[in-house]
Design a protein around this nucleic acid. Structure first.
Lengths: 136, 136
DNA sequence: CTTCGTGCAAATTATTTGCATGGCA
DNA sequence: TGCCATGCAAATAATTTGCACGAAG
């Protein structure tokens, strides 16, 4: 599975790989097209899905919006409800939570996903600016 | 906002309300149609969205699948990767996590969502059955 | 009565799939 | 050279929206 190393795969992986990179499929598509305008959206989706299965990247979804995360290691996320940006949360992924749920619920837990939502520091700044303008 | 109390709203709210109730929009649609076969899918969506905004229910999404939860209080969830069932997790919603992220990240956190995934007890049983069959 | 909510169908959005062809191994 | 991966377009799936009509207040 995923044997052949095509030019498209290399470009997509280069674009999405790396710690702190979070992109929607369309963003990946747009970025990849700068290097190869002939590439198709379906190819981007196919390869992103493949890379998720291979554990090279991961997919993070929040309320209908999906992001591909260049860092496959489990970690938590923060989403700004103003600008929609997603970023890594400054937390330590806590595997102990899973064990607690297994014990209390009589289930097997493979993993968990924590998504914090609120307002990012940039949007906080912008809001402060607007407040100032009102008074000037 | 949502002034009129229509028959449709009453039925939808009755179907979705309650602790432990998690349904997809289609499931709500199917259930509601048993009481009123004339009801439209768009009406179901419109009202579920309204009730979310009003804080009467909440929407929970996991990797592209959305559930409406009859209990609006923040709490964690568990999703079975075999049968897809979603249920409340046997955990205590921890508001302290939000404060930690606020402090470490310089952001405002309104809430968080934790979704555990794994195998539910029913699916575990079924797997055991299959194992036995192999040996009998 | 007036205006909001509904039902229906069409429109959107995000993603997947079928198929003929080109390109890695 | 053989078969997988690609590009394109069409197919799906989930949800939203426009509009004329019916019903709640």
């Amino acid at each position: 599975m995923n044997r052949r190393c095509t030019r498209q795969k290399q470009i997509i992986l280069r674009v999405i790989s790396g710690d702190g990179v979070h992109m929607t499929a369309d963003e990946v598509y747009a970025a990849v097209r700068k290097e190869d305008p002939e590439i198709g959206l379906a190819t981007v989706y196919r390869n992103l899905n493949l890379m998720c299965e291979e554990g090279r990247i991961q997919k993070v979804s929040d309320n209908g919006v999906s992001f591909y995360d260049g860092n496959p290691a489990p970690h938590d996320h923060f989403v700004c409800r103003i600008c929609g940006t997603i970023m890594d949360a400054p937390t330590t992924y806590d595997r102990a939570l899973d064990a607690a749920v297994e014990e209390a619920g009589g289930v097997i837990v493979d993993r968990h996903s924590i998504i914090f939502s609120g307002i990012c520091s940039e949007c906080m700044e912008k809001q402060k600016e607007k407040e100032k303008e009102k008074w000037s």
